[in-house]
Design a protein around this nucleic acid. Structure first.
Lengths: 105, 105
DNA sequence: TTATTAGTTTCTTAATATTGAAACAAAGAA
DNA sequence: TTCTTTGTTTCAATATTAAGAAACTAATAA
């Protein structure tokens, strides 16, 4: 039977992955690999209202994947977790393998 | 502006992370690191009905993270993506760093 | 002061995911 | 065949997420 400690551990990790479970948020992280961007630039690039962009970014921040830096009215977001790059690469590998398999090896 | 190709790429990756975005599924993957387990064993361990366990496992399979092997009435699931171990380790690192920061440095 | 620009938060609606129970299918065992 | 075990699927109810619009805050420019 699962222990309370294991339960909490799984919840913590799932919470981080939840932050990665949206195409817009993945796209933002990819952009942030290049350099820091502000909310309005990311919103513009993704073609979504800035309110939505702000909410996605705050989810990423809450998960510890990005951090923000305010200068005047402008808020710049930057990548904090270096392993996110590996995560994404691993993800692509899994996805490709899976497609290959589903298309009948 | 985001291209159609980038859009599809983000969607593919997000789909994989969505499979990781649930505590039960994280727990299942952790268990499967040890050795293959069948649906009823995992359901029992997690304390959930087998119908729910089956659905979670099929999501993991759909994402290419696990594979199944039927012998008689028993269906054994096993881990397919080796990098999942790294994913999980990275996740824990991010989570810990984040907690430390949120608790005031 | 009065705009303007950049972000965040709130509100309501719409879309997705998760749940347990029950129905169903398939493989053995009695 | 009939019972039992193991899994999957369907269904209806709930819960969670995401969406855009609008209100609001804060900093700066005119």
């Amino acid at each position: 039977m699962i222990s309370e400690e294991e339960k909490r551990r799984s919840e913590r990790r799932a919470h981080m992955f939840k932050a990665l479970a949206h195409p817009i948020r993945i796209y933002f992280l990819e952009k942030l690999k290049e350099k820091p961007w502000c909310v309005c630039e990311l919103a513009e690039e993704a073609g979504i209202p800035k309110s939505a962009a702000s909410k996605h970014l705050s989810q990423l921040k809450d998960a510890g994947l990005v951090d923000d830096n305010k200068t005047g009215t402008r808020v710049e977001y930057r990548l904090t977790a270096p392993c996110v790059l590996e995560l994404s690469t691993c993800a692509e590998g899994v996805v490709l393998n899976n497609r290959r398999k589903q298309l009948g090896l």
